[in-house]
Amino acid sequence: MTFLERLASGLPILTDGGTGIERRRRKCGAADVHAAFVAAGVDVIVADSIAVAGLAVTDPARGAAALADAVAIARASGAPFVAASLGPSGPGVRDATHRRELYGALAAAAKEAGADVIFAETLLTFFDADAALDAARAAGLPIAVTFAFSREGKGYAGLQAERTAQWAQGCGPDAAGFNCGEDPEATLAAFERWIAALVPPRPWLTKSNSRPPGAFRPAAGTSTPERFAVIGAHAVALGARIVGGCCGATPDHLAALVARVRAG
């Protein structure tokens, strides 16, 4: 079954959590983190490649090689699906042509390495979103595009949640939504604003943090796996078809989410 066939089936797709932070916490490599998320029962392992777009700005070949390595490590986890993660391009992009070239090289590398889908994540601008979308189409890969928002529903570069909904309607990625941001409540709030503005609906995606970045000692009870699972399951009830975690979301968080979502 392809990723798009699974998406069309209507069954929720569970992705993994915050691989980078989990690597840091466990002091281990991506393979061990992927294995822990697979054991938690997720359907999609997202390759540890969110930084390669920034790397590819100055060295496209090095960025493509790093992406291919990350996809191969994710593939070895045995997960049903592997997503190649592409993050923002960063400040070094010279112009639109340069941006399209770098995302094009990365999407081609993702296809060559055997990724099932591209997750263009934590995006801040439509420039990156457009370039990633076109690159995925050219490479023949499905793509999910997610933007990051603050608690107030604003993107760092000034995007409003409703504007990204309009972008998704007009440009038609295979799935779209939110990741990262601040915490599960903030992501859910942005998600609710987004789906209210989105007609007709298309597959929605939310990958929330379990806590704000750098909040190493969150207030008691605010970042527990149970709370994370309740909010994620609520997003599914609202119509999200892909749900998972981002910064601080551990295999325990994902195991709780998987259990709650699959229990219906």
């Binding site: 915050g18 980078g20 932070i21 840091r24 930084a51 970045p213 750098g214 910064c247």
Partner: peptide, 17 residues
């Protein structure tokens, strides 16, 4: 800095602050 950071957003926070 960006290309040398690993460890997700926590690493970003710690390096920046």
């Amino acid at each position: 800095l960006a290309e040398r950071l690993g460890g997700g957003s926590d690493s970003e926070v710690l390096a920046l602050w």
